[in-house]
């Protein structure tokens, strides 16, 4: 019901956006090639959908995105679980992480191309870096906040370290980790485009660079619309996942 009520507002927002855009195009008096009006972008969008080229790019982009993101989540959660349980080691590593974290993944791109070549790898590595730190930090702090009662139970039932991590610490910290996954997803999606501008020959980021080079700004804008739309879908997807986690884990929240 709530979503149905929100629907008119969502429509209104987009109508307003397109209207402002159209008005700006008319009043601004720019050439349509430099500042494409909505209709032209719509045409470009339809054309790449009809000839199917956009789907190949979406496919390869999503492949890179999920490869980088899932690998980052896997490594960061595992590392976070262990580091969260080793406070002394974390005290040593935390400053290092704090220095590395604010560096934009793009800053590493010269090294990434040198080390990983061109093709899929630069984009995957950049997405990996973008997703890695939010997940690591939220996992470590989630593990530190695990209710001491659960750890007492683990000790009482003579669980091994690995068992405690797997059966107690991971599930107990899962709601906070899920929140980190959500944040990381947004960050990683933002860096997908930048990552594909570095040495890729396909994908949405490449498509933008390619369209710019041939001065098809309507195509650039159409690409931006696609990227925004996909980002929204991904965000909604993980949002549902997070809601599900919180419902199951709701008992202690």
């Amino acid at each position: 019901m709530a979503r149905l009520k929100r629907f008119p507002f969502i429509v209104m927002g987009f109508v307003l956006l397109i209207a402002v855009w159209q008005i700006a195009a008319i009043i601004g008096g720019h050439q349509a090639a430099l500042f494409p009006p909505p209709l032209k972008v719509g045409e470009a969008l339809v054309s790449i959908i009809v000839d199917g080229s956009i789907f190949t790019h979406i496919q390869i982009s999503l492949f890179r995105f999920f490869t980088g993101y899932v690998t980052a989540v896997f490594v960061a959660v595992l590392l976070g679980l262990v580091l969260g349980r080793l406070p002394v080691v974390w005290q040593v590593l935390d400053p290092v992480v704090q220095v590395l974290r604010p560096v934009s993944p793009i800053a590493w791109s010269p090294f990434i191309v040198l080390w990983f070549g061109i093709g899929n790898m630069p984009a995957i590595v950049i997405i990996f870096i973008a997703a890695f730190f939010p997940v690591l930090l939220s996992t470590v702090s989630a593990v530190k906040k695990v209710d001491k009662t659960y750890l007492r139970i683990a000790a009482n039932f003579e669980m091994s370290q690995v068992e405690t991590l797997w059966k107690i610490v991971l599930p107990a910290s899962f709601p906070m980790v899920a929140n980190g996954l959500h944040m990381a997803l947004g960050a990683a999606w933002i860096f997908l485009v930048a990552g594909e501008m570095v040495g890729a020959q396909s994908g949405l980021g490449f498509l933008i660079v390619d369209a710019r080079n041939s001065l098809s700004l309507d195509l650039v804008m159409a690409c931006i619309v696609v990227i925004g739309g996909l980002g929204l879908i991904l965000d909604k997807g993980i949002h549902y996942f997070e809601t599900w986690v919180n419902r199951i884990w709701g008992g202690t929240q």
């Binding site: 009662t149 007492r152 139970i153 009482n156 199951i248 884990w249 709701g250 202690t252």
Partner: peptide
């Protein structure tokens, strides 16, 4: 085995 006041059940 210890029984706690807040039961200590695993909510998941």
């Amino acid at each position: 085995v210890m029984l706690m006041q807040n039961y200590g059940l695993l909510p998941w």
